[in-house]
Amino acid sequence: MSYLQLKCIVNGDLVELDIEPSELLIDVLRDRLNLTGVKKGCKKGECGACTIIMNGDAVNSCLVPAARAQGAVIETIEGISKTGRLHPLQQCFIENGAIQCGYCTPGMIMSAKALLDKNPHPTKQEIREALAGNLCRCTGYVKIEKAVEQAAKIIFEITEGRGTSK
């Protein structure tokens, strides 16, 4: 077995580690980097619990060979509140009661973040499209949708505020 030296940015930090070429990104993140916020629900790309953001796009980390992360910029749930302040999405999920068992939550928030990063004013339909790959069995999605709508507003207000102060 030849090892492969993987270099990538994970949650803002440069990560260098030897991996087996056939390892999946989900396993490297969970088992090697201890980022267990990346949840394993099906390992077949059918539930979205392992969703992370890779080079700006939401992807199922269970379907991505770790080797493909070479040189990539990766964000997981652990990385979006690194400064100690919760991300507006996290805040809005908490305040709206959008979290029940919490198992789908990290993936759900990462899908929502990938959406809002690119599209700060999503329609209801765009939110639903962005989250349709994340199954949730607890909430009926009602409060999740509301949380994302509210987070979009808050993020817009923050960035607008920044814009006017310049």
Binding site: R30, L35, T36, G37, V38, K39, K40, T76, I77, E78, S81, L86, Q90, F93, I94, E95, G97, I99, C101, G102, Y103, T105, P106, I109
Partner: peptide, 20 residues
């Protein structure tokens, strides 16, 4: 409607489930 006592842990991915 107070927020759930554990929801910050779940929102940040630090909540520990069995296979974690």
């Amino acid at each position: 409607s107070i927020s759930r006592v554990e929801s910050a842990e779940k929102a940040t991915g630090t909540a520990v489930f069995t296979a974690d």
